[in-house]
Amino acid sequence: MTSSADQPKRIHPHKFTLWVAMGSIVMAFAGLTSAYIVKKNQSSWLEFDLPVLFWYSTAVIIISSITIHLAVKSFKAREMGRYRNLITITAILGVLFILLQYLGFRDLEARNIALVGAKSNSAASFLLVITGLHMLHVLGGVIALLVIFARAFNKRVKSYSSVPVEMAATYWHFVDILWIYLFVFYNWIG
């Protein structure tokens, strides 16, 4: 840290900002999962099985991480057709992930586990709040993909900087890892 001024190649300031922002997001989820643990150790905690669909959504988001990784590689190789296809697939997988999470909550409601309202238990409410907040972050990633997507299809202005694409990919991997953490947390830790 002391002599980064003299290093020949510095990290792009926007990339660095993204890393700090991810640290910030981690704190929000750390706060929520700690609250979850505190609450679980108090009385009247409802034990229930996670929706099976969460397993599928986990698989979907892992696959999407692979596709965006390949997208960055093809952008750097200037294979623009392949790149466009891959980010399109990634965005679709992102939307599919959000959809699967939503269906998972519908499944809980079908099993008479109230998420909100007077009859709800904090166990289910926590699942909704934490997972919901994560879904919003995935949605943010989808929007970021749409932005670089629009840029990839822009015929007039060609972009050669890989920074936006790499940033979108970093963020995408981040929400992926965040979900894996939450999934492990719900199943085996919390």
């Binding site: 840290m1 002599s3 980064s4 001024a5 510095r10 300031p13 900002t17 700090v20 922002a21």
Partner: peptide, 18 residues
Amino acid sequence: GLNYIATVLNMRTKGMSM
């Protein structure tokens, strides 16, 4: 805050070590 951190760590002029 994000901006301040990124600026201090990345945008210092030549010779301005931490």
